[in-house]
Design a protein around this nucleic acid. Sequence first.
RNA 1: GGCCCCUUGGCGAAACCGGUAGACGCAGCAGACUUAAAAUCUGCUUCUCGUAAGGGAGUGCCGGUUCGAGUCCGGCAGGGGCCA
Length: 866
Amino acid sequence: MSTRYNARASEPKWQKIWTDQATFKTRDGKDAGGKPKYYMLEMFPYPSGNIHMGHVRNYTLGDVIARFKRARGFNVLHPMGWDAFGMPAENAAIERKIHPAKWTYENIATMRDQLKTMGLAIDWSREFATCDPDYYWHEQELFLDFLAKGLVTRKKSYVNWDPVDNTVLANEQVIDGRGWRSGALVERRELTQWFLKITDMADDLLAGLDTLERWPEKVRLMQKNWIGRSEGARVFFPLTGSDEKLEVFTTRPDTLFGASFCAISPGHPLAVKLAATNPAIDAFLKEAALTGTTEAALEKVEKKGVVSGLTVDHPFIEGHTLPVYIANFVLMDYGTGAIFGCPAHDQRDMDFARKYNLPVIPVVAPNGLGTDEQKSFLDALAVAKEAFTGDGIAVNSGFLNGLDVTAAKRAAIEKLESLNLGTGTVNYRLRDWGISRQRYWGCPIPVIHCKDCGVVPVPHADLPVRLPEDVTFDRPGNPLDHHPTWKHVPCPTCKKPGLRETDTFDTFVDSSWYFARFCSPKATKPTDRAAADYWLPVDQYIGGVEHAILHLLYSRYVTRAMKATGHLGLEEPFDGLFTQGMVTHETYKGEDGRWLYPEEVKLTNGEPVHVETGERVTVGPIESMSKSKRNVINPTAIIDQFGADTARWFILSDSPPERDVQWSEAGAEGAWRFTQRFWRIITGDLDELAPVGTPEPAAFDAPALALRRAAHQTLAAITDDLDNLRFNRAVARVYELANALSTFEPGRDLAAAAWARREAVEFMVLTTAPMMPHLAEECWAALGHTGMVVDAPWPVAVASLLVEDTLTIAVQVNGKRREELIVARDADNKTIEAAALALEKVEKAIDGKAVRKVIVVPGKIINIVV
RNA sequence: GGCCCCUUGGCGAAACCGGUAGACGCAGCAGACUUAAAAUCUGCUUCUCGUAAGGGAGUGCCGGUUCGAGUCCGGCAGGGGCCA
C-alpha cells in the first residue's frame, strides 16, 4: 500500500465512478422504496465567471448534509442550477461586445466544471439556468396565473432615474446620489410598472414567521422589521373652507392635540396641483425630485419645506386651523403621503418646527411625576430641541387627559370614527414588489399593450415570449425597446397592431420559485404537483445572510401565490434555514499603498515582503474576500494543489459555520497534512486489522475495549454534530479518534485488538466520508470492501459502549475545585460523599471547619460547603 | 438614534440543562528518527509565584442571584448586523 495519498489521481477517478454509476441520480417518491425524503438545497450561484471561496463553503456545507442524510437512509434531493439573468451579463455585452447569452452560458460551463472538481453529491440531471427559455417560459405562465388571480397590479411609482443612461437604477446602484455607471445626478421619476401585491399578504407573511422554528431568530427578526407592521389611524383633516379632506396616517393619534402643522409629500396630488400655479412650489418639487427614494436617503437630506398656502381644520378643536407644508421628508408611498406634525413627541417634526418657528405643544408627560415636576417637564419640552417619544399620560388633550398612551390612542380613534373624521388602521413599511426592469437580460413580461383593449395577457399557447437574439447594446436604454421588430405584434384580442411589454422581470422573481422547479425540472407546467408535494418543503436551505430579507421574503410570498394558483400546496418553502458566515483573509498593502494579492507576499525573517521587489508589506485587517482588496484565494488553485477533500476539510474545520472563517495558508497546509495522516492511519497497518467479515469476538480485553469505547463515542458525537450542523466539532471528533488510533497499544488478546482496530478504522472512514468523500472511498477500497462508502449505511453506536464503568468527578470545597475522585458509575451519593471527605486535599481545604452542606451532582461534581 | 447579536490562551475555537474552563486544530518549544534537511513520530504549551512539591489568579469591565456562573439577571465598555 502506498504511503502517500494521491488526491490528484484519486479525486477524478471517484468522481467518474459516481457519474458513471449515476450514484446521485434522485429517485422520485414512488421509486424511493419507502425511504423518507430529504431536500437539501444551497442558494444557487450567479454565473459570474468563476467559483469563489464563498461557493466552496456553501456547497461543502450542503454536500456534507446531503451525503450524511443519504447514508442515514434518506431519499435525498440535492440539485444545482444557475441564477443566470441580471445586469453583469449586459455590462459584459456593453464593455466587451459579447452577447449576454454567450457570456452567461460560457460562465456556466466554466463554473460547472469547477464545482464538479469539488466532488459534490449533486443530481446534475436536474440542472437548469433561469435564462433557459424552458425555465422562463414557466415563469411567464406563473405570472399570467397570478395576474388572472388578482395578485398583480400595474401602477405608477417613483424610481431612481439615470438621465444619462436613460435607465432605472436599483437603490444599490445609486452612490452618493449619482448613477454608479454614468455618474449623473439621479432623478426621481414616476413610471408605470408591474407590481406583485405582496402587501396583501403582509399579515400572513408576518404570522408565518412564528412557524419557522428552524430559521435563525435573527433572520425572522429582520423580516419582521422589514414588514414593519404598525397600528395607527387615518385622520381626515378637512381643508379649511372646502369639502375636500387631507388624509393623513399616524401611529400616534393620541398626540393629535399637540399637532401644529400638516405636511404632504412633494409627490402628493395636492402638491402637484399647487405647483401648476405657484412657481415657488414648482421649484421646490423639482429640487425634491433630485433626492433618492429610499428612507435612508431622505433621512440624511436636510429637512426642508415650503408653505402650501392651505390650512386644515383640527378634528378635535373647534375653529383651530393648522398650516399645510410641502416637505421633502414625507414619503409618498408610505401611509398616505401626508402627516400631521406633533413636534413635542416626534424628533423629525421637532426639527422641522424649530426650523420654521412652529409651535411646540407638549401633550404627553412621563408617568410618575408630581404636579410641579410635571409642569417643569412640560415647560422645558416646549422650548427643547429633543422630542419626548416615551410612554406616559396625556395632558393638555381635552377628553384624552389622564389616559396612558395606549388608552389615549384607542379613545382618539373612537372619537375620530364617531366624528367621521378618521378610522383605526394598520400600516406596513413593506411596499408592493415592483418587478418591472427596463433591461434586456431578464424574463420578458408576457403582456401586450393595445390601444383599444388595454393590457392583454399573451395567450398561454403563444408562450414562451422569447428574448430576441439580435440585439445591440450600442446606445443607452433598453435594447428590447430599440429592437426594430420584436415589440410590434398584433393584439391577441382585436388583432389590431399592438406593442409588447418591453420590460423584463426583476431577477428576484427568477430565484423565488427555482426550488419548486427542481422537484420536476422537465415538467411541461411550472410544477408537477405530485413531485412538488413529495419533495417540498426544502428540509435544509443554506446560503448567505445577505439574502435574509429580500430573496427569502419574496420566495415565501411566491410560494403563497403559487398555492393560491394551484401550483403548490404549501405556504412556507424552507423548513430549515442556515445562514453561513463569510470567508475572510488578511489584506496586504505595498509601500505605495496599493493592495497586493496573497501570492505576491512572502515571509522573510518573519517579516512580510513582496515576492519580487522585496519591499516591505503592511498586513492589514482580516476582511471578507473581495476583488477590490485583492485578498482572494482562488479555489481552483487550492483544489489543484491540495485536492478538493483538503479544501472541504479546511473549510469545515475550526470555525463554526455561521461565523466568518479565516482562510490561512498554514491552515490549508494543516488540512492537507491531515489527509495524509488519515491515509496512513487507515492503511498503514492493514495486516493488523481483522479481515472483512470477521465475527465479533465474545470478549475484549481492556485496551481493545477502550478503543471500542472511543470509536463508539466518536461515532455518536459526530452523528449528533452533523445532525445539528456543528461541522467544526465533527472535525474535532475525527481528530480525537485519529489520536486514539495512533496511540493504541494492543493488549494480550491480539484477535480482539485486530477486530476493535478494524471497527475504529471503519468508523473513522464512514464518519469522515461526508466531509472528505474521495479519500474515504480510497480508504474503503483499501480496507478490502468491494462496494463504495457512499453506498454504505451510517453505522450505529452501541449504547453500552458510550458509558464508562467509572466516572471522574470533581470535588469542590466552597465552590472551588480541590481534587478529582474516581468512583464507580453506580456509586451512591453517600459513598461518594464519604470518599470525598476522606481525601487529603479536601481535609486540608476544610481545615477543621464544620461541614454545613454537601451537594452531590451524580456523575459531575460534589461540593462541600463549610 | 432604535432593535438585535457578539466579546473565552499567541491565534481559530470547545464547554449541549448553571456543575472539573480551554476538547480539537494552528503557531511555538523540546525530544526521537536522519550524515543533514524535509517529512514523520512522541511529549509540552492560559497566566503567575516556585528548582520542585504545591499555591494563587483567570472567560471584556462593575455588580447581583446561587452550594456553584463563560453560561442566568442588571449596568457599563468595545466590536458587528439590521432598520433608520
